[in-house]
Design a protein around this nucleic acid. Sequence first.
DNA 1: ACCCGAGAATCCTACGTATCACTGTCGTGC
DNA 2: GCACGACAGTGATACGTAGGATTCTCGGGT
Lengths: 341, 341
Amino acid sequence: MREAAGRRQAVRISDVARAAGVSKTLVSYALNDRAGVKESTRAHIVATARSMGWTPSFRARALSASRAYTVGLVLRIPAEGHYFTGLLAGLQSVLSTSQYSLLTEVVDGDEAEEDAYRRLALGGRVDGLVLTDPRHDDPRFRLVREAGLAFVSVGRPPEPTTMPVLIHDESRAIADAVAHLAALGHRRIAQVAGPQTVAAAGRRRRLYQKVLREHDLDDTSWLEADHTAAAGRAATVKLLDEEPRPTAIVYANDLMAVAGMSAIHERGLRVPADVSVIGWDDLAVAPHLNPPLSTVGRHPFEDGRAAARLLLEAIDGQEFAEPVPAADPTFVARDSVARPA
Amino acid sequence: MREAAGRRQAVRISDVARAAGVSKTLVSYALNDRAGVKESTRAHIVATARSMGWTPSFRARALSASRAYTVGLVLRIPAEGHYFTGLLAGLQSVLSTSQYSLLTEVVDGDEAEEDAYRRLALGGRVDGLVLTDPRHDDPRFRLVREAGLAFVSVGRPPEPTTMPVLIHDESRAIADAVAHLAALGHRRIAQVAGPQTVAAAGRRRRLYQKVLREHDLDDTSWLEADHTAAAGRAATVKLLDEEPRPTAIVYANDLMAVAGMSAIHERGLRVPADVSVIGWDDLAVAPHLNPPLSTVGRHPFEDGRAAARLLLEAIDGQEFAEPVPAADPTFVARDSVARPA
DNA sequence: ACCCGAGAATCCTACGTATCACTGTCGTGC
DNA sequence: GCACGACAGTGATACGTAGGATTCTCGGGT
């Protein structure tokens, strides 16, 4: 059996100091590029450290600096794997240029989520958190406030804050989508909206309704569904039973849109001839579906980069009076939308 | 401007000790359930700690124990968001019952990946790593060996190791898929395989060929593609030009299968009447496609759970002589496969 | 009256880095 | 000739927890 964990640092700063014939302090100064070290001494120390293969201990540095050099992201499962993969990549692309790392925590329900936040916030496990999809009465904001933890919220939080908030303007994408449908002659447009406890889902549903009214269209035909294929299918079946039948359905995400198209086909109806369909997310498969899915593309990678930058500033003590606008989603027209039969 | 980061521990173990009128050591013993503390004293200490809201400092604990209480996972982007989301969830479900957290690092190329591993391995940032998709001459195994870091490999590593290795037996799923096609009368089955530098992709391609030969079928019609939609489409176009044309195509992942179906339609051919299609992954959208996609389901969540358990044991010093079998993938028949016209 | 031992509690140092406060040295200007 | 400041370098301690070594306490046996 090999030696169990609890691996000590192989070569310590004191080893380097002894080898170079100077004090630990000077080694630290030399390697952190601080003033007060003669250039020749610095070169000697750096060379010694390199030859000994010394890397500063992350743990000791974190304790000494009273910093975790880590930020946290809590993901909900089952969830939009798509958006979060991109967000993750964007966060990383910024963090890895700093000293920071990203800790992910995956949860599957409200209680688990609160536990996760408590675990991360307490004990100084992280210096900051990325919060996504704020809900009404979201307990997370109270938790982080009490813990005095920095955060960045992707989406408007339920309470005012001086922490950074990243917001998207979805009105343009929604206006484009509805205009596209209206121009083709659609008069009955139904909506399968996301969970209305998620603040952004409610806002998006109301935006769609507002734009429908601006086109003098009925805005009353909408249902709530929880982003799963089953819910999307069920909602679609209900909408197809309405009288008169909608000629177009807009969905809160692509997965529900795909399940909806499947339900439409099972009814013996065609997409787009009988019912046009629009999704939200622009999954990798969307352009290759049969028919290719019209949808709204988001910018998770850019969101991640912006969120990481803001979070690092917040950790640094910066305050934010106003929400920060992020890259807006854009409508992508494909063949799942056509003139109604 | 609020106070910048570098947040100290609000209440320390010494505060609790003073308030309870005992030494720091006794507080530590009492809260870590160690012997040598009178029961009444323990109760008093626990009550005091609770009333003061004390949580041990993660940073100090990590330094003192010479442990990071963290394991790392490096993801490649663009990649199978699907499998990794599940893997992440599985890893977490085990880690969060221990003291461990998961650090993710997202990279987009070979150099970035090596950097990422170096960052994590050096300085004791993590106690162990999850390595996925081993490649031939994979530099990561050398890196972790040199760093003396524990790891679990999801897939057979290129070099022998005493660290745990999780392996899947794909032969059953592949045999089922080919048997299903053969039983329906398919004689010309082509393959769009994954990147052959990934060891598992090569093995899977050869497995398909072996099973084809067992059915006395031609095994020479295969192409390599890099898991993207564009590559899947291009490979499909080439295969459709072959003479005689294949009546079925099996793909290394669902995304390429979807793109392939799209290419088949563009040729004026039908799925499954003219060409049957089988994917790999069982994406959430697969059952709802038009037609529903036959594919092979993996078990990322269970893989994640198993990997986490093994990694924690490896960190504990356990050695592994044999690879550990994981939940095998299973073939799922859907309507994208039918009797050839 | 004295010794012994088990259990209870404390003392002190390790963990490894960073940094504050300080000492020593040398050149410069008056 | 002396005061002073800039610069180079060192010593000691904080960071907060854990735990081995040690001391203390107290009851029981001889």
